[in-house]
Design a protein around this nucleic acid. Structure first.
Lengths: 153, 153
DNA sequence: TATTGTTATACTCTATAACTATA
DNA sequence: TATAGTTATAGAGTATAACAATA
């Protein structure tokens, strides 16, 4: 947890100018909220969409696997899966090899919704990015990879 | 709200390889969830902390001003303020110039909690950033500014 | 009339605790 | 015993609708 008290303590000045973690986390929190507030496509939230895209691209997985990948508890993921199932976007199938497990797979309807949502999902941010200088877009391209790696590490 | 339908349509390719908006938004969503799951300091959420820090740094503001700044509705901000008030971190004062308005200000206790939370808040991400190459940290430094600007634009 | 703040209510997403079925 | 899935329940954090007080 608190692996670096010396590092944290290094940030002693009341208004330390270069707390990179604070700057990055602050930007992430604010942009995430903004993305949510600008969302056009209703009917499907972040985790729902993330799970659906994963199932479309990577094939069927168990509930436990999905909960680990999305870093939520199994009951939380179960509710997400229940909602996606009620909407007809995924199906549950018994795992023939281990009858405790349930394999969760996207339906044709789910694949279609994922594709359609993808188009709408990033319209707002793409409009903002379009107006940036090319150098800034390159910075964001690299930053997205770095941040993604940190998030999934 | 939906200011750029033509721009959305510009992204027509079924699997556009370089959808920067998708990469950025995906990284933001995942990192935000990871930050929440790694959080050490309980007792105060993102919006609570953001409002408290703003009040400490920028002084008293009305409910409407806070709701605009945080991009939530006034009733949502009211609940946040109620929670902060119940915890003793902020106080409401009547505005002598306009008796419809209520000025919301951080208490000494709120100032102390903001300072303490700040130290814990970014321990996890700072530990991750510490191990990055200097070039990557520079990228993130620039990216944080760009993303923050987009989020608040 | 318009604006500010507020209450009531509901929905989404998360969590913990406790249960069932299978290994 | 341990693991996978599930149900019940609760707590944030958001929203809309409707209202009171003041400008």
């Amino acid at each position: 947890m608190n692996l670096q008290l010396s590092t944290a303590a290094a940030n002693e000045a009341p208004d330390a100018p270069s707390d990179l973690g604070m700057e990055v986390a602050g930007a992430v929190v604010r942009l995430h909220r903004r993305l949510r507030s600008e969302r056009i496509d209703d009917q499907i939230g972040d985790t729902h969409y993330s799970v659906l895209v994963f199932l479309v691209k990577q094939g069927a997985h168990s509930l436990k696997e999905l909960s680990i990948r999305e870093r939520v508890t199994p009951p939380s993921m179960n509710q997400t899966v229940n909602a996606l199932e009620a909407a007809g976007y995924i199906e549950r199938h018994d795992d023939p090899d281990d009858r405790r497990r349930v394999l969760i797979a996207a339906t044709d309807s789910g694949i279609a919704v994922a594709k359609q949502t993808r188009r709408l999902r990033h319209a707002w941010i793409n409009a903002r990015l379009k107006d940036l200088p090319a150098a800034d877009r390159e910075v964001l391209e690299r930053a997205a990879q770095i941040l993604r790696h940190i998030a999934d590490s």
